[in-house]
């Protein structure tokens, strides 16, 4: 067993972008192993920045971000890939390669890890099946709707079975029914042991799922609501 009880830990983390914009200031919280947490707040509150700091898409200006007990800010450039392979990320802008088929997009994390092709095939199809896009595997992302592209991004994030899943507005482009379905999917992933952190402003949905909620306001942690206190609608 690893010594760190927290999957992710923020200790007085601040992030100031060049140009003086303060995105986060003095944020502290812990994300337990196997927990599912929602991150909410108005747009520009720093949700995306917080997620980026975990995956080292940005480095903190002050404070410490710990992943699995390791100070992410101290990780050298050469070790960034190691960190990113432990984290599945669903991006707001999908970040898919438009000139690669859906199958190849989802396969990327496995290809990078050097997994054998038959295994890649099996796992990519399983991931696409879970997000309901198996029949689209030979299509190119621009041929799909925004919601479908979002689901391709989710399939890519989970295909390598990372211990931590980060999602930035994963239901932003989806209709309510599909949103609920996807959230349920994240819940089932979490029940299988994946730690999940989802940035979302879909408050109705969040309330229904009754999980811990972190509320960001102007770059500071305004509230940390434990799961049992989240009121069902």
């Amino acid at each position: 067993m690893s010594g760190a009880e927290h999957m992710v830990r923020f200790e007085q983390v601040a992030k100031r972008y060049p140009g003086g914009i303060q995105a986060l200031g003095e944020v502290s919280f812990g994300l337990a192993r196997g927990e599912m947490v929602f991150l909410t707040g108005h747009s520009g509150a720093g949700k995306s920045t917080l997620l980026k700091l975990i995956a080292l898409l940005e480095r903190p200006s002050r404070g410490r971000v710990l992943f699995d007990g390791r100070n992410v800010g101290r990780i050298s450039r050469r070790q960034i890939p190691w960190l990113r392979r432990q984290i599945g990320i669903v991006f707001q802008d999908h970040s898919l390669l438009s000139d690669r088929r859906v199958f190849d997009n989802v396969a990327l994390p496995l290809v990078i890890a050097g997994v054998a092709y038959p295994e890649i095939r099996k796992r990519v199809r399983a991931a696409l099946d879970k997000v309901g896009l198996l029949e689209k595997e030979r299509m190119y992302p621009p041929m799909l709707s925004g919601g479908q592209q979002q689901r391709v991004g989710i399939a890519r994030a989970i295909v390598a079975k990372p211990p931590l899943l980060l999602a930035d507005e994963p239901t932003g482009n989806l209709d309510p029914e599909l949103s609920a379905e996807l959230m349920q999917f994240f819940v089932s992933l979490n029940e299988l042991g994946t730690t999940v952190l989802i940035a979302s402003h879909d408050l109705d949905l969040i309330r229904r799922l009754q999980r811990r909620v972190l509320v960001l306001k102007d770059g500071a942690l305004a509230d940390d609501v434990p799961a049992r206190q989240v009121a069902a609608p």
């Binding site: 898409l57 890939p81 190691w82 960190l83 990113r84 991006f91 390669l97 990327l108």
Partner: peptide
């Protein structure tokens, strides 16, 4: 994108 998903 490659760098985002952990390519060295």
């Amino acid at each position: 994108v490659l760098a985002l998903v952990g390519a060295t």
